[in-house]
């Protein structure tokens, strides 16, 4: 297993290199630059700014300089937030996105797994219909509808919570519910499907014949197999949920990295675009590796190959 992990980690280097290179040149070939604004900067000032950030050098040299810096762990200064470095912005905002993501993930797992197992065990009876309807709703209702509805009820009508912001602990509740609900819906449907398949297997029938209790059968024997599709989904799912959601962060005014990532592209904040892309790429690669390991552990039919 260690050899498997080591080999996969070695593959990360060329993958990241390709991603950095492609992103670097793509953002540069997009029209506009970090200093284009409705009120244009006079050409003399523009030249000074470009010289300050080294944008006046040939592109290939800028690229090499950037690679050199990244290797040393320095993602450069941000163009938009002129007194902050990209490292600082990520260090500031990633924890916020992680906190939101982790809370939402907890909501998604508790709700999704619970309803999924329930629906499978009570197949084609009212708990199944109820859970399936909730799941359908979660998939169909977009976050930008769900979020404002929750705000309308809990913040404006009842006055229990803030409508937006990230000031106190209760401010985490509504965004986490909104973001978690979507993932809960997918997890619920995958769990239900996985469980139904497993519950029809011979070894479950054997367990029943031996007189094992229903709770033991579900939790001990069926769940492990039933979770396989969920785990496959969770790899990219967790990456998505942890790296921040532009929509949720905008609706709830959360100072997370997801919003920064999208806006950096609009602002042509070259270094911030690259910094966040590198971070996200690393996260996705890492989480996919974890999922592969977990899948082998859950499913004895798979091997580290």
């Amino acid at each position: 297993m260690l050899r498997f992990i080591a080999r996969r980690l070695l593959q990360v280097i060329p993958v990241l290199f390709v991603i950095i290179t492609a992103t670097f040149f793509m953002v540069r070939f997009v029209p506009g630059g970090p200093f284009t604004a409705e009120k244009a900067v006079p050409p003399e000032i523009l030249r000074n700014l470009e010289a300050h950030y080294g944008l006046d050098q040939p592109l290939w040299r800028q690229y090499l300089n950037y690679l050199g810096r990244v290797v040393r762990g320095d993602l450069g200064p941000s163009f938009k937030y002129s007194n902050r470095s990209v490292n600082e912005i990520i260090a500031d905002k990633l924890p916020v996105s992680l906190e939101l993501g982790a809370t939402a993930l907890a909501v998604a797992l508790v709700l999704g797994l619970g309803l999924g197992v329930l629906a499978a065990v009570r197949r084609n009876r009212w708990p199944d219909y109820l859970a399936s309807s909730v799941g359908m709703l979660g998939i169909c209702v977009p976050t930008f509808v769900m979020g404002p509805l929750l705000v309308l009820f809990f913040a404006i009508r009842l006055g229990w919570l803030n409508a937006s912001g990230w000031y106190t602990l209760p401010d985490r509740i509504l965004p986490a519910l909104t973001l978690g609900f979507v993932y809960a819906a997918y997890i619920m449907r995958l769990t239900r499907g996985g469980m139904l398949e497993v519950l029809n297997q011979d070894y479950i029938r054997t367990a029943r014949a031996k007189g094992a209790s229903e709770v033991r059968i579900v939790l001990r024997h069926a769940l492990r197999g039933g979770l396989l599709p969920v785990v496959a989904f969770l790899g990219p799912g967790i990456a998505g949920i942890l790296t921040g959601s532009f929509v949720i962060e905008t609706i709830f005014q959360i100072p997370g990295l997801g919003r920064e990532f999208v806006n950096s592209a609009f602002n042509r904040d070259y270094t911030l675009v690259l910094g966040t892309v590198i971070l996200y790429a690393g996260l996705i690669i890492g989480l996919n590796l974890v999922v592969d390991v977990v899948q082998v552990w859950l499913n004895p039919k798979l091997k580290f190959e």
Binding site: I156, A163, S164, Q253
Partner: peptide, 18 residues
């Protein structure tokens, strides 16, 4: 000062007394 990137959520924040 509360930066509001989105006009709709700013209006909701006003209604929620923020």
């Amino acid at each position: 000062f509360h930066p509001a990137a989105d006009v709709d959520s700013e209006e909701r924040a006003y209604r929620a007394g923020q």
